[in-house]
């Protein structure tokens, strides 16, 4: 019975993941491989960034709130791209919140604990999902309609040039594990339902949910990747790597906010405030 329950949990989380995250890894890999009728528009310098404004704006007519379009209307390149990054973060946080609510047991937790789990978990989950949109050369943007090269991002002035390069380095190691969307659904749920976030009230309840997810993940990996014996321990190690990545990211964002003439979205301000 327990085995059947864990399989059901894996299925439920996979379904919730496909329901709430618009760009699955499977779809992103098709875009990255150029196997779509309209390949992504490649942004590799200032000229192509300007062109993206027209091209992507045409693609997105009727979507007035799209961050890429409004961000591209800003004057400075770095500010524009920083705003694009924020837009993607905010969009992903809203998707992750809906996904979290679909994790069995999450919605019954104390509301303050739900807030704490999201505050500490969303960026780790975001960088996990971002890896699906990355290859060694760049990053898919605007729901797969654009592709920004890694070299262009590295050529920005500091500190903006430091924003995404560590995420590329993480993504290259993480993508080497060759997880699919069903594996990622369980991994992202395990990131969110984590019993050792600071300030949690009901740790035992969260640990109970987390243990089920981790157990379901272990069984799912055995079935889905039977030849990769060490995949499960490798993936647990990635949880520690993600925590380090987020700590450094939060510091960098605070530095950008203090030293650059840029604003930070109120939702991201809430998350970063008193985080680490």
């Amino acid at each position: 019975t327990q085995l059947a329950d864990l399989k059901t949990l894996a299925r439920q989380l996979h379904e919730a993941y496909l329901r709430h995250f618009h760009l699955s890894k499977a779809k992103a890999r098709i875009f990255l491989a150029g196997k779509t009728s309209t390949p992504p528009f490649v942004i590799h310098d200032l000229d192509t960034l300007q062109q993206a404004q027209q091209i992507l704006a045409t693609h997105m007519q009727g979507d007035e709130k799209d961050g890429l379009v409004s961000a591209l209307q800003e004057r400075e390149t770095e500010s524009r791209l920083f705003r694009c990054c924020q837009h993607t973060s905010v969009e992903t946080v809203t998707q992750l919140t809906e996904f979290a609510k679909a994790v069995p047991g999450f919605a019954n937790l104390d509301l303050n604990d739900q807030v704490t789990l999201l505050k500490y978990g969303v960026h780790e989950a975001f960088f996990t999902l971002l890896a699906s949109c990355m290859n060694k050369d760049g990053l898919l943007v605007a729901h797969g309609k654009g592709f920004i090269t890694r070299e262009f991002l590295k050529s920005l002035r500091r500190p903006f040039s430091d924003l995404l390069e560590p995420k590329f380095q993480f993504a290259m190691c993480f993508n080497a594990l060759q997880l699919d969307d069903s594996d990622l659904a369980l991994f992202v749920a395990a990131i969110i339902c984590c019993g050792d976030r600071p300030g949690l009230a009901n740790v035992s309840h969260i640990e109970f949910i987390q243990e089920s997810i981790i157990h379901a993940l272990q069984l799912h990996l055995q079935a889905n990747h039977p030849d990769n014996t060490f995949l499960f321990p490798k993936l647990l190690q990635k949880l520690a790597d993600l925590r380090q990545l987020v700590t450094e990211h939060a510091q960098l964002v605070q530095d950008i906010k203090k030293t650059q003439d840029t604003s930070l979205h109120p939702l991201l301000q809430e998350i970063y405030k008193d985080m680490y």
Binding site: K65, G67, S70, A71, R83, Q86, H87, V90, E91, V93, T94, T97, E98, K101, L111, N112, Q114, V115, T116, L118, K119, G199, H265, P266, L267, E270, I271, K273, D274
Partner: peptide, 21 residues
């Protein structure tokens, strides 16, 4: 926590609502 995380709180309590940039 509720006071300091009003938007997260709102996202948790409501179904998906747009978060404007």
């Amino acid at each position: 926590l509720k006071e300091k995380h009003k938007i997260l709180h709102r996202l948790l309590q409501n179904s998906t609502s747009p978060v404007d940039l």
